[in-house]
Design a protein around this nucleic acid. Structure first.
Lengths: 190, 190
DNA sequence: GGTCTATGAATGAAAG
DNA sequence: CTTTCATTCATAGACC
């Protein structure tokens, strides 16, 4: 049951869910075919529903991806009908990793105002992955985790750890700020 | 912990997960902050990871839905490609047209339909007050001060905190830029 | 229909 | 983590 979980090659591992055998032995909350052992713990139905939920979202995402691609393709001038999975995968993920990461050399040490380096712009695929990770509730990653994420993103285009760090910092700060502003706005209106 | 589950109007209902209190009383599998009671049952980490995974899928689905809608709308009449489409496509990793934005687009309008999200235009009275505040040497206001200013300006017309924040940011940057240009011009001539 | 300019907004990076 | 800076994108309005 635990193999359908990581549809998207997650950064962190998902511990395997308990097997049916384990559940049978130790029980959920007794609403299933198995005996009650730990009342108050997650029930069998809940666990099963979670699995379904994930499967459903996964399926939805997949379908929407196909649909989106199809609509997009047909909206182009000389559109081609057929769209292979490989092509879709290509459009979503693998873009040619281009040139150098181009992290602006720290400017502080320079006496005058030297020209700053060009700033990093996440590729579409990189942004998608970052958003996904953020949606997951992940905070600013540090240490090995950040390195791991950077490595993964590097397969999708130029990037370095500082970029990843900054992105999460900014994302978090701006999400929070937006929240506070909304609260203030609510006070104003109501 | 149990409220974040059904972010996207799920296909089927999810029974509430056990509350933290329940978990505390009856325990998961001991990898969390709570005592082990039912070894073999789902662990705290597993539960949490499931929630995160669902959140991520949910986010992806949401973005893809927006994209689909945008593409559809813009396939009508002679609509020009909007920044919104590019931004969303960008965020979920679908490569938008041949145009390479090279810069992630902002999203003015959050919703798909309804009045197109128009950008704020300060009323004459608001602008006067803003200029007045800026003339006192005030920098970009934050926190309570920004809320206070926003409240005051709100009496003169529609405005929100982000508008105030942006106005000061832009005002400062462009004032500074103008100064530098004047100096440069002076150096050239003199 | 154009393009030009002023300006609101977004965001990576850096400073505090 | 919070605040600020620098740069860029995108749009409204003026004018042609």
């Amino acid at each position: 049951m635990s193999e359908g979980l990581c549809a998207n090659d997650p950064i962190f591992d998902v511990p395997p869910l308990p097997t049916d055998e384990q559940v049978k032995r130790f029980g959920m909350d007794g609403d299933g075919p198995y005996p009650t052992i730990a009342p108050g713990a997650m029930t069998w139905t809940q666990l099963d529903t979670l699995r379904h939920q994930i499967a459903a979202f996964s399926h939805l995402c997949e379908q929407r991806a196909l649909l989106t691609q199809q609509i997009y393709e047909e909206s182009k001038p000389g559109h081609q009908r057929s769209q292979t999975l490989a092509a879709i995968a290509n459009s979503i993920g693998v873009s040619a990793a281009g040139s150098q990461p181009s992290y602006p050399g720290p400017v502080y040490s320079k006496g005058g105002d030297g020209p700053r380096g060009a700033r990093w712009t996440p590729s579409a695929a990189q942004l998608a992955r970052l958003e996904e990770l953020f949606a997951t509730g992940m905070g600013t990653p540090n240490g090995d985790l950040r390195t791991k994420i950077t490595d993964e993103l590097a397969k999708l285009g130029p990037v370095n750890e500082a970029n990843v760090y900054n992105w999460f910092q900014n994302k978090k700060a701006r999400t929070k700020k937006k929240l506070l502003e909304e609260q203030a706005a609510k006070n104003r209106s109501g």
